[in-house]
Design a protein around this nucleic acid. Structure first.
Lengths: 228, 228
DNA sequence: GCGTACGGTAAAGAAATCTTTACCGTTTGT
DNA sequence: ACAAACGGTAAAGATTTCTTTACCGTACGC
């Protein structure tokens, strides 16, 4: 993944500097904002991948700012604060925060939490589904397996996306059709069957690759990783 | 959202029971597993939306089981444990956990963390991009605005997805083309222009709706919410 | 052993998408 | 004021996708 950009919003200059140095040493690009108004500016310019937000800021409440952020970005928000009262934690998480870390915090733990959030963002927020080593990229209109990019049609993407989301579960033809076509299967139709066949051919799911696309029951498909 | 299913993996029966009652009272469906082997079974049967995982289990390590889970499901995993050494927290998060809560924990905080994880999953993990009140659903092949569902073509979905992800930022024609076509714009091409036109017509972005799709600079588009 | 049901593939017609072209109104620069 | 550049829309042809149909092999029940 390309270098991720972190937006650090924190009023204590020395804490801000320590954090900035730490995350830059970890390979991130760190953008700092000691006030909420500066944070607003940086948000437009930098488009951060994740935001670390102090609850207590000179020009407003971090909680309220969180709601404002949510309007503009889907980036994960991790609250940082001294307050460790339960009520405060709950409020932060329910206001739209993704995590809540109380000071004093261990930088390695904070870093691990950042990693955890970014990992999930990478999997999802960018219109991408992942079931390593398979990636379905709706935005690019393709799937990637073992480094091989394969352009897929819309229906193939929908189908494969469906399989990835419900990986390991049995999916009836009917459920699949409803999910991807938005309506019940009309009378008799072998459309799904045909698309699955095309998908198999394009993605080479047979030939002992990473995945199996089988039919364990009548009128059902199951998609799973090859165990080895 | 439909009732979410939680998988509680915990060897202490009384703790398990307390958690089960608590989450059921909160409106969740709670599935219990006092051993890892039972967890494996439940995983197949129930397809949980989120997993609460105790690190110390009689028949194996929660950390290792987490890696196993990641093979089968994308559901968020929250670790529960007495261990609060930094090293343990970091390990859990890097092994594929989404959050880590140490015992003794406050049930309301745990619940808030569950909510935060599910909120993000609902927004993203299912192949959906959201910029309320606009939703781009790749799996369904449609966009939803003000409750109106509009079926889109693949290129339109890619384009709109691109706009949602980079909402509020200026996007050059070239960047857009690279993202959605995977290659630099060939010579002279008005393809993007044409698709944008179709998208506008289908989604009715003019006529004072929620969104603006403008061109603030030469060869650039900008997509943003209508401020009011 | 036979017939049926089912999963799978391939190919062809039907249908839609994608690209290009043409044209129009507005803005920009000279 | 004029020409050129640009954003926008609409329509047509080229291309691709989607659906249906046909056909093949295997598994299952009788």
């Amino acid at each position: 993944m390309k270098q991720a950009t972190l937006l650090l919003i924190e009023d204590e200059e020395d804490v801000l500097e320590i954090n900035r140095e730490y995350f830059e040493s970890k390979g991130y690009r760190a953008v700092c904002a000691p006030t909420l108004s500066q944070a607003r500016f940086q948000l437009e310019e930098q488009a951060p991948d994740l935001i670390l937000l102090d609850v207590v800021m000179p020009d407003g409440s971090g909680f309220d700012f969180c709601a404002e952020l949510r309007q503009k970005t889907n980036a994960p928000i991790i609250f940082l604060t001294c307050r460790d009262e339960n009520e405060s934690v709950v409020k932060g998480l329910l206001k739209g925060g993704d995590d809540y870390v109380t000071k004093p915090y261990d930088l390695d733990i904070l870093s691990a939490r950042v990693t955890a959030q970014l990992r999930r963002r990478g999997n999802t927020a960018a219109g991408i589904l992942e079931l390593p080593p398979l990636t379905v990229d709706f935005l690019a209109g393709e799937a990637v397996l073992d480094g091989i990019h394969t352009a897929l049609t819309l229906k193939e993407l929908q189908l494969l996306g469906c399989f990835v989301i419900y990986a390991g579960q049995r999916l009836t033809f009917e459920k699949i059709y409803r999910r991807a076509w938005g309506e019940p299967t009309p009378g008799a139709s072998d459309t799904v069957k045909a698309h699955v066949s095309n998908l198999r051919k394009k993605m080479k799911f047979d030939d002992g690759s990473w995945f199996e696309l089988t039919s364990p029951r009548k009128n059902e498909y199951m998609f799973s990783k090859v165990r080895y």
